[in-house]
Design a protein around this nucleic acid. Structure first.
Length: 665
RNA sequence: GGCGAGGUAGCUCAGUCGGUUAGAGCAUGCGGCUCAUAUCCGCAGUGUCGGGGGUUCAAUUCCCUCCCUCGCUACCA
């Protein structure tokens, strides 16, 4: 079984998530989905880094304990990911007790091996800042913040013998050209390694100065500082040393980071792995910054972009597509709502959205809404089939090599060619002239080629691509579906499948200043009532399906498409724990296992009728992809389904036990 | 200062292991179609490929040098 383990950095909880965090994590998510769709077993890790000086200070400033503060910011990250369509396999926190045990075990191991020593660390210490300054950081010999002269103090600390592994690391990087990519960062690291002897890494802080950290196993007077704590998350999340996930996934590890943490990941971490006797990761993938108004985003400049607001304003698909399409992986790129709008309108609305819209309309007008029989391809169709095959082959090669921009561009070559093909074939003329065989052939060619393009957008925009596949009559992806089967093949779209009457997947965004772009609609319009003539070649009776009926209404709710139903992630979960929410009469905080690794927290308004203790072990139906929401300070991720009756509230449960997380359909 | 990356059409970028008229998308102008989300298709461009020098029959692509931007690192050779 081929596998892929991909990680983002764990994000430091001294600030709320911004676009940079979102980019890294969305890239990881897209790569993870792509791997899963190409037959790999995957593990995707993200999390939060929560120890250190700055956290203690930030917590104090917020009037909280470090623990409370970390919980709050970590929750902000955890609840952001589903809003960005990101679905990690696990979320690690450095304050997780299991992580602390791993870090201690690793420190002990490296200490036993003789690669950690006790030494003196001297520097200019500013008591106001509670930190050391190097000579060059001091301006005119005084602290830049406090304008006071720092005191030179010597402090005993523990050091990791990084220099011992310097040559071995340099050799490894030379022998494995893909170890650090893109190549510009590889040469940067080699240049650091070649330019002199590495300084050993200071890995501790005395408890007299810092207690918010993991205690050294060999000296209770110290906590470990920064990198031994943070970097080890990549193996502790897999259950190192004995976890099955570690054995399964570590050999396929690759990390994704922004360029600011190149050195820790390219130098500290591999040498730590060497000291631990562990194999190195396969790839370190390094990306650049998103610039806003031509400079790096920063709070003081006030140009920080909020990813959640962008997702709400432009839709998930638009945001994720833009991020992957606009940045050349490795280089910096500029973010602006103007370029996002331009990209959205040109690529998604005009090219792709309109392609689907015009095609589906024609299938309904000319073919009764069913996928026509393919027929025998002629020269023009063979050209499209070949182009599709080339485009997809390129896409696979480029996407896997992190060249998302070029990968998507090659997909768009196909999409643009389809618009051109439609113009050349002019189905409206074929229809008028009664040339039904060619008409069916032309529309089938467009539908099938569009499907092949859209299916490759699933990793980029899972939800929107899924909806488009349904509109195209292909429906949700089969369980054992493998994207690689799309290269060099043709005709997966079954004739006779009914297609949506229309598609308004990516409505153009009004670019006029001040206009508030609407969130793109994600549902298909209802079918028009008028049944169209059906001159297209009839599909084989076995494949024929009932054409969509005109919209009707049921008890006040408008009739919906099957695709609408599919947007609901309904599952059966098992209650692991339940407790009353403090200060609320009706709310229970319920932990529900839905087979995700860690149980979900759901806040449910059922406390009036249900005793928390009686709920444990019970299976309940829940809506799992409801937008997370904070209720009474608790983030609720989902809702429990229930029926209200007089004097009570019945929870929905399966009549017989089912696996936790079983999908309701 | 050293090291690394980059400087290609108005914008965002691709590309050239040296070789006929240097590409794409967006934006701009003109024309066409009507199935479509005022969408789509066609045509039209423009560029001393950062400056200068060198090697070569031939350089945007190789070498040298200078300028500018970004990053890392440092005053130690």
């Amino acid at each position: 079984m081929k596998r892929q383990y991909i990680t983002t950095p764990i994000y430091y909880v001294n600030a709320r998530p911004h676009l940079g965090h979102a980019y890294t994590t969305i890239v990881a998510d897209a790569l993870n989905r792509f791997a899963a769709l190409t037959g790999k077993q995957t593990f995707f890790l993200t999390g939060t880094d929560e120890h250190g000086d700055k956290i203690v200070k930030a917590a104090q400033a917020a009037g909280q304990t470090p623990g409370e503060y970390c919980d709050a910011i970590s929750a902000a990250y955890q609840s952001l990911w589903p809003k960005l369509g990101v679905a990690p396999s696990a979320f690690i926190r450095t304050t997780d007790p299991a992580h602390a045990l791993t870090v201690k075990a690793a420190l002990q191991k490296v200490h036993d091996a003789g690669d950690i020593y006790f030494g003196e660390y001297g520097g200019h210490y500013c008591f106001g800042c509670e930190r050391f300054y190097t000579e060059k950081e001091l301006q005119g010999g005084v602290c830049p913040d406090h304008q006071t002269k720092p005191e030179y103090i010597a402090e005993k600390n523990y050091f990791f013998k990084m220099s011992k592994y310097q040559d071995r690391l340099a050799r490894h990087i030379r022998e494995n050209p893909d170890f650090i990519r893109p190549a510009q960062y590889r040469s940067e690291v080699l240049s650091i390694l070649d330019s002199g002897v590495l300084e050993d890494l200071c890995i501790s802080r005395p408890k007299s100065r810092l207690t918010w950290g993991i205690e050294l196993p060999f000296d209770a007077g110290y906590v470990t500082y920064v990198w031994f704590d943070a970097l080890l998350n990549y193996v502790s999340a897999l259950g190192w040393p004995d976890g099955k996930n570690f054995a399964d996934f570590w050999p396929s590890a690759q990390h994704l980071v922004a360029k600011d943490i190149l050195k820790p990941h390219a130098i500290f971490w591999p040498t730590m792995l060497m000291a631990l006797g562990l194999p190195l990761y396969n790839h370190l993938n390094v990306h650049g910054y998103w610039l806003s108004r031509d400079t790096k985003m920063s709070k003081s400049v006030g140009n920080v972009v909020d990813p959640e607001a962008m997702a709400e304003k432009y839709g998930l698909a638009g945001l994720r597509y833009f991020l992957l399409r606009e940045m050349t992986f490795g280089s910096d790129a500029s973010f602006s709502e103007q370029s996002l709008t331009a990209r959205f309108n040109a690529d998604l609305a005009n090219d792709l959205g309109n392609l689907l819209s015009r095609t589906l309309t024609m299938v309904h007008k000319y073919c009764g809404g069913a996928v026509p029989a393919a027929g025998e391809p002629e020269a023009e169709e063979r050209a499209i089939i070949e182009l599709a095959s080339d485009a997809l082959e390129n896409f696979h090669a480029l996407f896997g090599a992190l060249q998302f921009s070029r990968a998507l561009e090659s997909l768009w070559e196909l999409i643009r060619a389809l618009n051109k093909y439609i113009d050349a074939q002019a189905p409206w003329t074929l229809f008028k002239e009664g040339r039904t065989a060619k008409l069916g052939l032309a529309l089938y060619t467009v539908l099938e080629a569009a499907r092949k393009a859209v299916v490759h957008l699933v990793p980029v925009m899972p939800e929107a691509a899924g909806a488009m596949l349904v509109q195209l009559g292909f429906g949700p992806l089969p369980k054992d579906y493998d994207l690689t089967d799309e290269i060099g093949s043709w005709g997966f779209l079954p004739a006779g499948a009914s297609v949506a009457a229309s598609s308004n997947q990516f409505p153009r965004i009004d670019a006029t200043p001040g206009a508030m772009p609407e969130k793109p609609a994600k549902t298909a319009k209802p079918c028009p009532a008028a049944p169209a003539p059906a001159p297209c070649p009839a599909p084989s009776p076995a494949a024929a399906q009932t054409p969509a009926q005109p919209a009707t209404e049921t008890e006040g709710c408008p009739e919906i498409e099957f695709a609408d139903f599919q947007r609901l992630d309904l599952r059966v979960g098992t209650v692991v724990a339940a407790a009353k929410v403090a200060g609320a009469d009706k709310l229970l905080e319920v932990l529900i296992d839905i087979g995700e690794g860690s149980p979900r927290t759901v806040v449910a308004g059922i406390a009036e009728f249900h005793d928390p203790d009686a709920l444990v072990g019970r299976q309940v139906a829940m809506l799992a992809n409801l937008k997370p929401r904070k209720l009474r300070g608790v983030v609720s991720r989902g809702m429990i389904l229930a029926v209200r009756r007089e004097g009570g509230l019945e929870l929905l449960s399966p009549a017989n036990p089912v696996p936790s997380g079983a999908k309701i359909s």
